[in-house]
Write a protein that binds this DNA or RNA. Structure first.
Length: 385
DNA sequence: TACAATT
């Protein structure tokens, strides 16, 4: 319900263009086509569950809409999180930017700006950047990339548990695809300024190319965070399950899908029965190994590398493996972005050194199904051949 | 088989 959403949202500064005098109606060019540049808006970072009707209702509250479209995945129908609104009156477009840009809807802060004219040259101009120095901020990154062209958007992803620490990963969208290509040529594999490690720059994956399974996983993760926040303990993971069916939209057609996914992921049948035991490696030898590999706990705790997980492994198995040894703050199964299968390894963060060392000593060499796990403190980087 | 990250 849009009125409820509006009552809880805040506005912030507009980033719309200024200084241009606006005509008072549609501009018709000499070839008969309509110039939409002052009336057509692009809206980004919409909540996943926002419908076309809510979208139209929200933006229709500003003024008469000529046309609007929430962009969806061609196959799954899932919202891609952005849309277009074309107003009749350019003044209403301006007003929509001033009123609605920066609006907080659920977990998102929407962006409202003038849409660039549709053109083949602006497609596939989005880059994914990894290996960025943790000290580099968005402005630094833009400065580095701006030599290759006009930047439309940029973002550096941040860790949500350690509140705002860079994950060394980001996105840069250029105005033109050829600018993005030049940036890859110029910056991929290069070390920024005084950085110790080279960065990776490549074209970003297109969300619409995600598999159905990947979309479901994302949908589930989004829903889980919305209701319970970051997950820390097994008990929280299980207690959140009943609440998932009670979302704000009772008409949400994806509910049965979510229920099925949850049953598949957390059914008792899949819980492994564990018999932790001590490996031949002693705690004392682990202590000395830790000294070689680590300078200390990074951020929230001690990061542990877990190798030889099956392609079907998920986060729950890591919680169950490591949870008995002490405080686990985070687990992550690394998956192939296109297949969504585990790449054979994952990471676990534990708060206390002694508990982490005990977990490693016990679980390294542990047989899980037909696999023998290899567990150690994470190293800073594996040498590349 | 070997140390991530996809708004």
């Amino acid at each position: 319900m849009v009125t409820q959403i509006i009552s809880t949202m805040e506005t912030q500064v507009s980033n719309g263009p200024s200084g241009t005098s606006l005509p008072n109606g549609p501009v018709i060019s000499t070839n008969g086509s309509t110039d939409d540049s002052k009336t057509n808006l692009i809206v980004n970072y919409l909540p996943q569950n926002m419908t076309q009707e809510e979208f139209k209702s929200l933006f229709g509250s500003i003024g008469e809409i000529e046309s609007c479209k929430l962009v969806r995945d061609k196959i799954t129908g899932q919202s891609l999180g952005y849309g277009f609104v074309n107003y009749v009156d350019p003044n209403d477009a301006d007003k929509a930017i001033n009123t609605l840009n920066g609006l907080k809807l659920q977990t998102k802060t929407i962006k409202v700006s003038y849409a660039r004219p549709s053109s083949a040259s602006i497609r596939d101009a989005n880059l994914y950047v990894s290996g960025l120095p943790k000290t580099m901020n968005q402005k630094d990154m833009e400065q580095l990339f701006s030599q290759y062209g006009r930047i439309i958007t940029s973002r550096i992803l941040v860790d949500q548990v350690t509140a705002g620490i860079s994950r060394g990963v980001g996105f840069i969208r250029f105005d033109k695809r050829n600018e993005a290509e030049e940036a890859i040529k110029g910056l991929n594999g290069q070390k920024p300024l005084g950085a110790a490690e080279p960065i990776t720059v490549k074209f970003a994956n297109n969300p619409s190319q995600k598999t159905g399974q990947a979309l479901l996983t994302q949908l589930y993760q989004t829903a889980a965070r919305r209701y319970t926040g970051p997950l820390h303990h097994q008990t929280q993971r299980f207690s959140m399950i009943p609440s998932l069916g009670k979302g704000p939209d009772p008409n949400n057609s994806s509910k049965p899908i979510l229920d099925n996914l949850l049953n598949a992921s957390y059914g008792v049948k899949s819980s492994p029965t564990l018999f932790p035991r001590f490996s031949p490696i002693t705690i004392d030898s682990m202590t000395s190994l830790a000294g070689v590999n680590l300078t200390g706990p990074t951020g929230a705790g001690w990061c542990i590398f877990v190798y030889n997980l099956s392609p079907e492994a998920d986060e729950s198995v890591l919680w169950q493996l490591f949870g008995p040894f002490g405080a686990v703050t985070n687990v992550k199964v690394i998956r192939d972005f296109t297949t969504n299968k585990c790449k054979g390894f994952g990471f676990v963060t534990m708060t206390n050194y002694d508990e982490a060392a005990m977990a490693i000593a016990s679980l390294n060499g542990y047989r899980l199904g037909d696999r023998v796990l290899q567990v150690s403190f994470k190293t800073s980087k594996q040498h590349k051949a």
